[in-house]
């Protein structure tokens, strides 16, 4: 019993280490990128796309490197199902509704669906090998290019509008602190290293505690990945999606989830597959991946049916879908 409590404690602590380290790592990497002259648009898009997904990526890579590949795949697929059915479900129920624009939804949703289908396609051939990895990473580069293009267009339009209207708004002073010249400072480099080391150590501890807990409780590592680690590593997505939905930043809310799902598969599975074959469990192919694609389609149907928003009823449907999936996966199909 004591061992279980210690392992659960270790799991929670390692999760916090992973999430905070990912934040420190991305944050300081962006600082260095800015100082090196990389465009703020590219940095912003990449940072927001990677920022919330680094815990899934880190745990998938560390799980693969430490021989628990199924745990890594489980974390990625489980996170993707939880992101849509769980996180968007909870956010829609709490916030009342999450609106989205048709352009952004179509682009991000099509990419998420396409990504799921790419994964399913390669899963049909058995293990996911380096050839699949190359396709996946190339597909992610294409997606990043699309995002950067869209952001550039958005920034250009914003710039033109701001020139037209004369703003005479009384603002709080801290707003004016931006746009100072930046240079690479040693602190940023040190924090990138600290963040990276924290990420590696945190992920290693998390995978260790996950594997040990699974073995003590007598449950398959895949289930541990699909649920415990998947939900744990998705905490950044949960806080971002929920708080942005409550603040009325609807595009950020759905965009975070769809962007994260695309990253999780293309990079979370693609990068480990570059170095070693990622084995595919039969149930992943016949049940988990199809459920992931199903909830992606269900989200689109619910949003389109409710006039481009996910309302409270839609949120409840998504949450119910997740509960049914979890029940079947844990108690019926194991």
């Amino acid at each position: 019993m004591l061992e279980i409590i210690a392992l659960v404690g270790l799991l929670i602590i390692s999760l916090i280490i992973v999430i905070k380290s990912a934040d420190v790592f991305v944050d300081n990497l962006v600082e260095i990128g800015g100082a090196l002259g990389i465009s703020q648009i590219i940095l912003g898009v990449t940072a927001s796309a990677i920022g919330t997904s680094l815990p899934e990526f880190g745990s998938a890579v560390i799980a693969s490197l430490s021989g628990s590949t199924e745990l890594g795949v489980g974390t990625v697929i489980g996170s993707n199902i939880w992101n849509i059915a769980g996180i968007l479900g909870i956010s829609a129920v709490v916030a009342g509704s999450i609106r989205t624009g048709s352009e952004g939804l179509t682009r991000d949703w099509l990419m998420t669906l396409g990504t799921g289908l790419i994964l399913l396609f390669f899963m049909l051939f058995g293990d996911i090998t380096w050839t699949a990895a190359v396709v996946m990473i190339a597909a992610y580069c294409f997606y990043l290019w699309l995002l950067i293009k869209a952001q550039k267009k958005h920034s250009d339009e914003d710039g033109q509008e701001k020139e037209k209207e004369s703003q005479n708004i009384d603002e709080t002073p801290e707003k004016l602190e931006k746009n100072s010249e930046k240079t690479i400072n040693k602190k940023s480099i040190a924090f990138v290293i600290v963040g990276f080391v924290g990420l590696v150590i945190g992920c290693r501890l998390m995978v260790y505690s996950g594997v040990e807990l699974a073995s003590i409780a007598g449950i398959p590592a895949m289930i541990m990945g699909l649920f415990t680690l998947a939900i744990g590593t998705s905490i950044p997505e949960l806080v971002v999606t929920l708080s942005s939905a409550m603040k009325g930043l609807h595009d950020l809310s759905i965009g975070t989830v769809l962007g994260s799902n695309t990253f999780n598969i293309l990079i979370g599975i693609g990068v480990p597959a570059l170095f070693m074959s990622v084995p595919v469990e039969r149930l992943s192919l016949t049940f988990d991946a199809p459920v992931m694609i199903f909830v992606t389609i269900l989200l689109f149907v619910l949003v389109r049916k409710s006039n481009m928003k996910l309302n409270r009823v839609g949120g409840i449907i998504l949450l119910a879908t997740y509960i049914v999936y979890a029940f079947l996966r844990i108690f019926v199909l194991t």
Partner: peptide, 14 residues
Amino acid sequence: SVPFLTPKKVKEMM
């Protein structure tokens, strides 16, 4: 205000 564990860059973006 943002919840604990919100990435700093995302907070700035918000």
